[in-house]
């Protein structure tokens, strides 16, 4: 290497930059999981009058599934609703006894509808409302509308501002790395000037710097990828308490190749691009 100290400093700064970027990606993944969990909980329930024919309900289910906004529709039959109800109240003798006295199942079959995007639930609910199916008793969306609207608004807000924060932080990290590389190349300006004056072409001069940029990118991308191992090993048990549905340490191991690839890729692009720009101004001689 041309300059051991500067190379080391450059690789360290780039490693930190890539670590920040990788951390932001992991935070994005975690946020996605949390948001997905929340979104999964938002749905529309449609209740059918007792003794509605199952085939009529299936027809409605099919027509709902054909809608492009709908992600999935699950059917819970009267019997299943009853079984669930009994299970929930199995310690309440009064209710169980009261149920036993009825000769008919009083509970209603249900369709649970999930939308691909919770903001589209309104359209689905309106669709059902307009069809005026005689067997539909009620649609609970209208009861929960305020809560659902507020929740999906918050989700969209978190997603957008999170993305903006990630971009800003990543941009800052990249600027720091870019400036470090510029300083490294500034220290070689006299050398570049000499090369220029003895008749070296721009590409001849750039070549070694770009190569160095590639090497710095690979080294720091690899280092950052490795650095996540111990860090996640320490952090993920704590995260697991907050976000039980994903173990970051395991997730990272499963996606190590992708992460390593992304970090090295970003590192190489950052290194080559910064070197190219930084050398450029000294070639104008």
């Amino acid at each position: 290497m041309r300059n051991g100290w500067l190379s080391t400093a450059t690789i360290l700064v780039m490693t930190l930059t890539l670590f920040v970027i990788g951390g932001l990606i992991l935070m994005g993944v975690a946020a996605q999981v949390v948001l997905g969990d929340l979104e999964g909980k938002i749905d529309i329930a449609v209740y059918f009058y007792p003794n509605s024919s199952e085939s009529d309900i299936m027809n409605i289910k099919n027509s709902l599934e054909a809608l492009s906004d709908v992600k999935e529709v699950s059917y819970i039959s009267q019997d299943a609703v009853l079984a669930e109800f009994k299970d929930r109240h199995k310690n309440d003798a009064t209710i169980i006894n009261a149920l036993g006295e009825l000769d008919q199942n009083p509970l209603e079959a249900t369709l649970n509808i999930k939308a691909k995007d919770p903001t589209k639930l309104q359209d689905v609910a309106d669709y059902l409302q307009n069809k005026k199916y005689p067997i539909v008793d009620k649609i609970n969306y209208y009861e929960n509308q305020v809560v659902i609207d507020r929740l999906s608004g918050i989700l969209a807000g978190v997603r957008n501002s999170g993305l903006a924060v990630i971009f800003v932080l990543a941009a800052i990290a990249m600027l720091v790395a870019f400036n470090t590389i510029r300083i490294a190349i500034w220290s070689a300006r006299e050398e570049i000037n000499i090369m220029r004056l003895v008749g070296a072409s721009s590409w001849f001069i750039r070549g070694p710097f770009l190569f160095e940029g590639v090497m710095h990118g690979i080294a720091s991308g690899g280092l950052a990828a490795i650095l996540f191992y111990p860090v996640l090993w320490v952090v993920s048990p704590k995260l697991l308490v907050v976000i039980p549905s994903i173990d970051m340490h395991v997730y990272y191991q499963q996606h190590l190749l992708q992460f390593g690839g992304i970090l090295i890729g970003v590192g190489v692009v950052l290194g080559v691009f910064s070197s190219f720009i930084a050398v450029h101004r000294y070639l104008r001689v």
Binding site: R2, E190, E191, N193, I194, R196, L197, V198, G199, A200, S201, S202, L283, R284
Partner: peptide, 24 residues
């Protein structure tokens, strides 16, 4: 232009007061 300068510079050798040798 900048791209064509190397051709001229290879036809003219240059010597400076401060030598301008690459130190490493």
């Amino acid at each position: 232009g900048y791209g064509e300068l190397p051709k001229v510079r290879r036809r003219i050798g240059t010597v400076f007061q401060d030598y301008k040798l690459l130190p490493n």
